[in-house]
Design a protein around this nucleic acid. Structure first.
Lengths: 333, 333
DNA sequence: TTGTATGCGTTATCAA
DNA sequence: TTGATAACGCATACAA
């Protein structure tokens, strides 16, 4: 029993092949009664369109390539989840490429997806080099960057409003009475790091607090980084800061570990504010105050944007969206 | 400038279309010099094979469907990561479906993947119903279950050796001098829960400790479950257990929260052992002793198994693999 | 409104 | 060793 194809349905319904085609893709040029008859026949035989043939004809597979830096990072996972949900709604499949935050793998991923002939690509770029993005532009495949973007590159993207995030976090700490607020920030090549710094500085400025260079530490990406910077600050900076603002919840975790070791009580002796609001942050011994990024939504918006590009063909338009973030106050501040 | 196809390369090299095809797929029936010339021409023109045409012809897309219960669960994410890595090595792409641990979505996912005409499927089944698996069997698409399986269903699967895991955890606690070991286990429909219970019971039995029914609690899947069961145990069971073995690190987190609230010091007054070894478990205030499942490897093995089925066509063979687990002792026990 | 015929780019079958 | 030609299943331009 081989696969049921258009020809079989045509024979069953006593019509031609392309009448069946018309019925299946409900085009206007067909009488409702023949259409009905055809659909009956299709149903009866259990017809399923052959995706490969359709793709060959139309040169579209209804597949979107997703290049993600690290799916096992609880920051990215919900983003991908959001993508999946939206893609499903819009009738697209997602083909996944994990780069492990590695540049070469990222370039490799772009090539693989080109080979896969995906309709479009969404990608959370590793930002140390922009080779992959440039290559992506060369292929001509429509794409949208997610979560991270390049200030000096004209691409579509959807990201978080990190200037706002930095501002909210710093303002919150200032309201709590802190004036010496350490900022353990990400590396400068990271778009988010730069924007959060701007927001942080603005908040301090509005309260006439000067930015103390010895309290700004970079780069920090991991828990270990957070730990090391904090240890260094506690050892060498006087007066010690009474608050720590971290580039990510991961980094905040390292900060809290260092504070614990140095018997600095959180939040009594020092406040800590993280960033991202990954799942675990609310489960900690001392639940973490953090800046929540709408991760699922970010993924959804990215897919939405891409599909609009794909289907409406509004090629010229540059869409650059920054989603609002939200301060979530918990026990650590 | 439209796409370069076989015909273009053929013209450039001065040969026929299918000589080019032979060269590209390096078949034996071609002289090495013409082959060389063809490859030169292909390179020069930048030929890339059309995946859709190839798929139509061969009825294979070299795509594997992945149905995962919850990609934002730090237990599943590394599994998917492992799958991605192995799939890439073997020349397959991964198309992702997240079910959100929901049965209906799972059935939906199976249908979608059938529609996508994937070559095969790997899936971490939601175990409350087996409808999706049955439907998957009906489609005839080769598949492998991952992480979870059904005792009463003859399918290929790769999972963790949970009997061993339960045994290791309980033995460890016994060695530490505990005899009243609470087991906050998963629901009985879960294959892992049943097998871990067996391992736990065996360890107790070997040390002539009887299994106390009041210390066995089910079902627990979330942190909240762990919290609730622990609170109940602390309130009503005497003598109180001196150790807690959790179905997952998540559940353990709930247990630890309850203990903290009740001023039970870990590990002085009570030991806690989790399961899975998700990333965060080592970052906790009191780092969690746990049973490590080789998550990445599990994903890799699943893909490996599936691809062998696909390519070797060894349909008859049932492969059921249980990967060894490892006890990771940290501060909580 | 319906049917005929062609092409999408490959691979496979046959002759040459 | 090579080349002409026929599928694969669908969609569309064109004819009826």
């Amino acid at each position: 029993m081989s696969r049921v194809v258009l020809k079989d349905v045509a024979r069953e319904a006593g019509v031609s092949i392309n009448t069946v085609s018309r019925a299946m893709n409900d085009r206007p040029e067909i009488s409702s009664e023949t259409k009905e008859r055809v659909l009956q026949a299709a149903m009866k035989l259990g017809y399923k369109p052959n995706k490969f043939a359709r793709a060959l004809r139309s040169n579209k597979a209804e597949i979107i390539g997703v290049i993600v830096a690290d799916i096992s990072n609880p920051f990215f996972a919900p983003i991908v989840q959001g993508m999946g949900r939206k893609a499903r709604c819009l009738g697209y499949g997602l083909i996944l490429q994990d780069t492990g935050e590695d540049c070469d793998t990222e370039v490799e991923a772009v090539r693989t997806l080109e080979y896969e002939q995906v309709d479009g690509v969404v990608m959370t770029p590793v930002q140390t080099h922009k080779r992959a993005v440039l290559e992506l532009q060369d292929t001509g495949v429509p794409f949208v960057l997610v979560a991270r973007h390049f200030a000096d590159l004209e691409t579509d993207f959807v990201a978080a409003d990190d200037a706002q995030g930095g501002y909210l976090a710093a303002s919150h700490l200032i309201e709590r009475g802190h004036t010496r607020i350490a900022f353990i920030n990400g590396p400068d090549y990271n778009s988010s790091a730069r924007e959060r710094m701007a927001g942080y500085a603005q908040a301090l400025d509005e309260h006439a607090i000067s930015v103390a260079p010895e309290l700004i530490r970079q780069p920090a990406l991991t828990m270990e980084d957070g730990y090391a910077h904090t240890m260094d600050i506690l050892a060498r900076v006087r007066p010690s800061p009474t608050a720590f603002f971290a580039f990510s919840d991961y980094v905040a975790l390292g900060i809290m570990q260092a504070l614990r070791e140095k018997k600095v009580n959180v939040p009594i002796d020092a406040a800590v504010v993280g960033y991202d609001d990954i799942t675990f942050s609310s489960c900690l011994d001392v639940a973490l105050t953090t800046v929540r990024i709408p991760k699922q939504e970010m993924g959804e918006v990215a897919i939405q944007m891409l599909v609009e590009k794909l289907e409406r063909k509004n090629v010229g338009l540059r869409e650059q969206i920054k989603l609002p973030v939200e301060l979530v106050v918990r026990a650590s501040s």
